[in-house]
């Protein structure tokens, strides 16, 4: 039988899964990043911000994950929703834009990234659950977009997404001004993320910031490190060496299996 050559997902097993679900079979969940992400446009560019908590149900899966993804040297993207979807969809667009830069030799434009994202998300009718805040600076100036899982987009001067978006938007609506300085903008975005971190259970841990201007990018990983452990054990459990019995020991000499050959450096073609 000939199969169609096509990319994307296979939906062959959807019917089977629906049948199982109807019989009461529980399907494994996936890591949803209950999240606070936000961005705003200031005088010279864009500031993006994100918290760093990733949750699976009510447990914290990762206490310090990265939610601000690279799209192009002048474009970054915050992701909320299913972790796998946000990582892959931003990765795919980053790769397409890199090829496009090789083909055209020009800087990537933020609208191009936005159009690629919305086209992909619309194609999958919301099943790829990525809610994004896309920001960057190109020759037309700073741009900020929100992209919804169904493929709709908004162009805004300030934007928030994720389960903490209402907390963050409350801070923006109260404190946003046109043409803020870099410091003002960073402080406001950090405050917006912090309000999500403290008041939304889906968001937590630290604050990441990414400042994009026409002169370059400053990616501030863990710009605000909010809280350390509040208590140190007075009688910590110490396992003495030898607590775990050694059942078997085997030593390999890998030098016999590996041959190291010295070689000349190869010429690389440039230009």
């Amino acid at each position: 039988m000939e199969t169609a050559q096509q990319g994307g997902f296979s939906f062959d097993l959807c019917k089977r899964n629906e049948f199982f679900a109807a019989k009461g079979v529980q399907h494994p969940g996936f890591t949803k990043t209950g999240t606070t992400i936000a961005g705003l446009i200031f005088k010279d560019g864009v500031v993006l911000g994100a918290d760093t908590r990733s949750t699976a149900g009510s447990t914290v899966a990762d206490k310090n994950c990265e939610k601000i993804h690279f799209i192009a040297p002048n474009i970054y993207c915050c992701g909320a929703g299913t972790a796998a979807d946000t990582e892959n969809v931003t990765g795919m667009v980053a790769s397409q834009l890199e090829l496009h830069r090789y083909a055209t030799g020009t800087q990537s434009r933020v609208v191009t990234a936005m159009t690629l994202l919305k086209g992909h998300l619309f194609k999958y009718q919301g099943h790829v659950s990525a809610a994004l805040v896309l920001g960057g600076v190109d020759f037309r100036g700073p741009h900020l977009f929100t992209v919804y899982p169904h493929g709709s987009t908004d162009s805004l001067p300030f934007a928030t997404m994720g389960s903490g978006s209402l907390n963050a938007m409350a801070v923006f609506e109260a404190g946003f001004k046109d043409d803020m300085s870099r410091e003002e903008a960073m402080a406001l975005v950090a405050r917006a993320i912090r309000s999500g971190v403290m008041n939304d259970l889906g968001s937590g841990s630290n604050v990441d910031l990414c400042i994009i201007t026409k002169d370059g990018v400053e990616y501030l990983r863990n710009h605000e490190y909010l809280q350390t452990k509040t208590y140190e054990r007075q009688f910590p459990q110490k396992f003495a060496s030898g607590s775990v019995p050694v059942v078997r020991e085997r030593v390999y000499d890998i030098r016999r299996a590996v041959q190291v050959v010295e070689g000349e450096p190869m010429e690389m073609e440039v230009s």
Partner: peptide, 8 residues
């Protein structure tokens, strides 16, 4: 109607 549908 749906923003995603009408935009696309």
């Amino acid at each position: 109607g749906s923003a995603a549908d009408t935009q696309n």
